[in-house]
Amino acid sequence: MALLEVEKLSKSYGSNTAVAEVGFHIDKGETYGLLGPNGAGKSTTISIIAGVLKADSGSVRIDGQEHGVSNAATKGQIGFVPQELALYPDLNAWDNLMFFARLYGLSGAKARSRCGEILEIIDLTDRAKENVSTFSGGMSRRLNIGVGMLNRPRLLILDEPAVGVDAQSRNAILESIQRQAADGVSVLYTTHYMEEAERLCDRVGIIDSGRIQAEGTQRELISQVGEDDTIVLSLGGGKDRAVRALKELSEVREVSVEGSEVRLLLKDARSVIARILEVVTASEAVLRSVEVQEPDLEAVFLHLTGKALRE
């Protein structure tokens, strides 16, 4: 059952259309990614969904209830983590969390308990009494996410939360989000990093120029654009016999050879790989290595929009 339903959402600024009839849904406990380059309409879309920006047209429903900037009941079910840091640098991590907990209506023992839980989730318990002004970018980002989780949201919205941080901090951020999803929280995650979407998201909506160009699981998106998988074999003696035999396989669409490397184009390589290895073994070729290369979301985005994801 859908927790979030978005229908024909549109927003313009003068003659500039930021969002054009965007529609998608997120099921309970699902992580949905909006994948697109900067300026694609991701931030505008989620700002409307979070209830901080009014749409020109379209609708948003949370668990079947109409949702908008003035609906406090549905807003209370959302945790929103903006791309910009919403923290007080002169306060320590604990005091920041306590301040925002009070804004959420938590106080006393409940506030202290929840702030303690959040510090554990974002792995900052040992830095709780340090001023945020001394934090690294990654630590600040993690605390920013923690603030968005204080109210135990049913829908957690994150606008590129890992942008501009080092690899270790990015991994910590993604792990904390995965833990929320494992606990049944629905997640709406925007990014222009393909690898983040692949790691986190059950389904992905590819957005460009304010429109959803396609959506689905990674494999569904790849199948929509007809991309082939590639198997790369490094062969020694007996290579020519192996190549002739591989060309006879109905599953193999194309075989190319460059030096010791043999590249096979085909659909669903993982279901065929065992047969490929049988043929190579039967030809008595020396197999040095094998690699399966599956199309990724970057390739899908390029196919759909004619440009690279990070342009």
Rank of each mutant, 00 (worst) to 15 (best):
D208Q: 00
L221E: 04
N92G: 07
E120C: 09
I212G: 13
E261V: 03
V286K: 15
K54N: 15
L246G: 12
V279Y: 13
R114L: 06
D56H: 11
R203G: 05
N131E: 02
L265I: 04
K110C: 04
E130P: 11
L174D: 05
D27Y: 12
T190I: 07
S283N: 11
S283A: 13
S57D: 13
A72E: 07
E227M: 07
I177L: 00
V280E: 11
V22T: 11
S283R: 10
L119H: 06
I62A: 10
L265T: 09
D90I: 02
Q168V: 07
G148W: 02
I46S: 09
S260C: 13
E248D: 13
I46H: 08
I26N: 11
I206R: 04
E196P: 14
A55K: 15
S10W: 00
R179H: 10
D123C: 03
S59D: 14
A269C: 03
S59H: 14
L246Q: 00
E84L: 03
V165T: 03
P37T: 02
D90K: 04
G58W: 06
L4M: 06
V225F: 07
R270E: 12
D228K: 08
I212D: 12
P153L: 04
V280D: 12
T17H: 11
L287T: 09
I173N: 01
L302F: 09
G138A: 04
I121D: 10
Y189G: 10
G68D: 15
V69C: 05
G184T: 02
G306L: 04
D159A: 06
R199T: 00
R288G: 15
K28V: 15
